Amino acid sequence: MPWFLYLIECADGSLYTGVATDVEARFAAHLCGKGARYTRARKPVRVLASFELAGRSEALRAEYRVKRLNAQQKRELIAGVRTLDSLLPQPETSEE
């Protein structure tokens, strides 16, 4: 089952990063005040981007990396200037 990393714009202009299997349902939960404390306080406006990942562990690793970015770097990711793959550790290849 795929998991998604998503970025939400909040009413104060800040960005929230999260993971879910169903981004639309998770965004609806944020809108109803049943999401993260961060979005309850800052009122989510819209989903700016979502990225499909292979599974939960990959999504959580990506979330950790994206949350360490500053707002400008997150906006570059949303705009496609920066890729999600560039943030993730690359698997080691064995040389024979």
Rank of each mutant, 00 (worst) to 15 (best):
V66Y: 15
E95S: 13
G13M: 02
V81P: 08
A11C: 04
L87F: 10
Q73G: 13
E95I: 12
A59E: 06
R75Q: 09
E52N: 03
G33T: 12
N70A: 11
G55V: 03
T21Q: 14
L15S: 04
R26K: 04
E76N: 14
S94P: 05
G80Q: 01
L69N: 13
D22E: 02
K34E: 13
Y16C: 01
A59D: 08
T83G: 08
Y6L: 00
K34I: 06
R61D: 08
S94W: 09
L48G: 05
E76K: 14
L5K: 06
A71Q: 13
K34T: 10
S57L: 14
L31E: 08
L69Y: 14
F51L: 06
G18E: 10
P91K: 04
R37G: 15
R82N: 07
L88Y: 00
E95D: 13
R68E: 14
F27Y: 08
E52Y: 02
R42C: 00
A28T: 04
P2A: 11
L60H: 14
D85G: 07
M1A: 02
R61Q: 12
S86T: 09
A49I: 00
R82V: 02
V23T: 03
A25T: 01
D12F: 01
E9V: 01
F27Q: 01
S86E: 11
Q90H: 01
A54K: 12
L15M: 06
S86K: 10
G35V: 06
A36H: 15
P2Y: 08
V47L: 03
L31S: 09
K67H: 12
V45Q: 03
C10S: 05
G35W: 09
E96W: 15
E24K: 08
K67Y: 11
A36I: 09
Y64H: 15
E58I: 03
R56G: 11
Q72R: 15
A20N: 07
L77R: 07
T83D: 09
F4C: 02
P44V: 01
G33Q: 10
A25M: 02
S86P: 06
G55D: 14
A79Y: 00
G33E: 09
D22H: 09
L48M: 11
Y6K: 07
G33V: 03
L48Y: 09
W3M: 07
R68T: 13
S57P: 11
R37K: 15
T39G: 05
L48C: 13
A20Q: 10
T17V: 12
T17I: 10
R75Y: 05
G55P: 02
Y38R: 13
G33S: 11
T39W: 03
R26S: 00
C10E: 02
I8E: 02
I78P: 10
L15W: 06
R40V: 13
T93N: 10
S50A: 12
F27S: 04
D85C: 07
T93C: 10
R82G: 06
R82M: 08
I78W: 12
D22N: 10
P89F: 05
